[in-house]
Design a protein around this nucleic acid. Sequence first.
DNA 1: AGTGGTAGTCTCAAAAAGAGACCAGCACTA
DNA 2: TAGTGCTGGTCTCTTTTTGAGACTACCACT
Lengths: 136, 136
Amino acid sequence: MDSKIFNLKAKLEVYKAMTNGGNFADCPVRDVIQGISGKWSSLLVMALAEKPYRFGELRRLVPDISQRMLTQTLYDLQRDGYVHREVFPTKPPSVEYSLTDLGRSMFAPLQMLVQWAELNRDAVREARAAFDAAQA
Amino acid sequence: MDSKIFNLKAKLEVYKAMTNGGNFADCPVRDVIQGISGKWSSLLVMALAEKPYRFGELRRLVPDISQRMLTQTLYDLQRDGYVHREVFPTKPPSVEYSLTDLGRSMFAPLQMLVQWAELNRDAVREARAAFDAAQA
DNA sequence: AGTGGTAGTCTCAAAAAGAGACCAGCACTA
DNA sequence: TAGTGCTGGTCTCTTTTTGAGACTACCACT
């Protein structure tokens, strides 16, 4: 075992002590990770990292998101402080979404993961195909 | 805008060309990200990065996961090639789960995100509290 | 004979996500 | 002047996903 890999068990004990001493259910890191690991969260953060977008622009950019989920995911991202929402009083009022500083700082490590995914998507697809073939 | 931030729109065009030319729905990166962004996936990968664990050990380590979701998440991780499953013919047969090389290589960027979450969990919680207070 | 540990599966209820209709207000067009 | 479309959503209904908990079979130990 690589000793540089952090010790999860020790961390769990720390979290137990930090929270209610009982279980590991409300581990604060999990809380944060969960907020950004939703189906659409990372995609929207990636989009907004490029430049601010309006609601309809995001909808067109990600065609297979429903309006309902776009609304809700943006709301959640705003609530967690990653995204800023600004309404402009144009004739049909337009709403612009942009990353906050916190959002940009979170985007950095997220991008690492996305880059890994880009590099390794073939490996994952092959593994998946091999597994499915073995199951059949 | 920071010019070092990659251009999502250009990427989207590339993906469009790579897939069916139509929409961005089956973007391969999203496919990979989705596999590791489940509610339990990252947590189990983090656990297995420390050392291999057996089914029951994982269940005890993460007390609030149901057996059903543990089974299924491990199955999915195995299917995508992140996790290796090995059955030992002990008297009650025991099953050991461990990370594959692919899993370990994915854990590296995942850890970046987890470290970010550790450092910024307070900021996120404050943002959340402020937002909720403003809504009320 | 009863208890506990092994790794699950099965069923049913609750929560989350997806599909699509609907809304008000303004601009442009026929 | 009535229709059409764009703005950013909400509302309802259905499908999918998740969670809770009972149940299985086998073996060891008491």
